[in-house]
Nucleic acid binder design. Structure first.
Lengths: 177, 177
DNA sequence: TCAGGTAATGTTATAAAGTAACGCATGACT
DNA sequence: AGTCATGCGTTACTTTATAACATTACCTGA
């Protein structure tokens, strides 16, 4: 599923509904730290917390949902609940987007943790309409086909959005090759 | 460009900035009539007018812009200016979307007339960040790559969104092969 | 031709998503 | 210590979209 350990061949992407997600989150946070350090960017407590909230969600999460959870974070951990307002969240998300730590799903107005933050890429997503999960794939054939087409026309590519809605194998019950 | 006569090889898509767009619009409306008749759908005056407004715009147009123009349509033609409210426009757009007469560009929250309403397809778009034009392409290699990937994972595809932002050849000044 | 249903549109109100603008705080560098 | 940039708080607002209900238009069979 969305945040299963990266499997770039796509095979097991929608498989483990019940994996240890906390572990994924931790790992993602560590990688994020590393990336920010490398890039001289500041992963502040707030940004870190937003990233964590995005990752914790099993499905793409909207900015206002992040906001709501951010405000509730008092009880849970030590972080005192923030008196956050929308700009707070949007700024954090913008930061995370800029550094490739999250992706935005345009067709859902929602955000997901990036599964391969190491590489520079625009995400490609398979989004299940039933369970809501979004699997990030990275298919070179798709990317290449798009780049080729653009080049033929003389179009300079900046950002590529590929979002496929449908049913994941778990939800169709269909076996997959 | 966006509404140039369909060129599915993509070649001349961004070429004619100053073509006779009125002609495109007319043609699109005729085709739309035909399609609706064939499908037993009612292309009411309102829907027709919304479709026309979308087509008249050289760039993807937002629902609220359509609304504004709809309200101004008094002076222009005989159609008395409608006291339209948002739902009016959104309903018309939904109808047009359902029948494949327009596409929605998710990354812009905007709509464009469909260049090949005959065929069933989700659109693929090259969107110029400078001039705002959106060229609809239909590249089988891209579609196929996406379908193949989905099939491999066992994912049932419903709708595919491909949106490429960048610079069109006119705006880069770059020649194209 | 008119009763009754269905589809389309009008109308009001509100929800959801996103941003502008300004000011304070923090901490990084001189 | 001073100052400068960055991050965040806060207020207010814009833009985009929809829910819910009223009304009208249109079609169909008695």
């Amino acid at each position: 599923m969305a945040h299963a350990p990266a499997a770039s061949d796509g095979t097991a992407i929608f498989e483990q509904a019940e994996h240890d997600h906390a572990h994924c989150v931790d790992q993602a946070l560590h990688v994020a730290e590393a990336i920010c350090t490398r890039e001289g960017a500041r992963l502040t407590p707030l940004r870190r917390q937003v990233l964590e909230l995005v990752w914790r969600s099993h499905e793409p999460i909207g900015a206002y949902d992040v906001l709501a959870r951010l405000q509730r974070e008092v009880q849970t951990d030590g972080t005192d609940g923030r008196p956050a307002a929308p700009p707070t969240v949007y700024r954090a998300l913008d930061f995370l987007l800029k550094h490739g730590l999250v992706h935005r799903i345009e067709s859902l107005n929602a955000y997901v943790g990036c599964a391969h933050p190491q590489q520079d890429h625009s995400g490609q997503f398979l989004i299940c309409q039933e369970c809501g999960n979004a699997a990030e794939i990275e298919d070179d054939t798709i990317s290449k086909a798009i780049r080729d087409n653009a080049r033929r026309i003389g179009f300079t590519v900046d950002r590529v959005t590929v979002e496929v809605s449908g049913r994941c194998p778990r939800c169709t019950g269909a076996p997959h090759a």
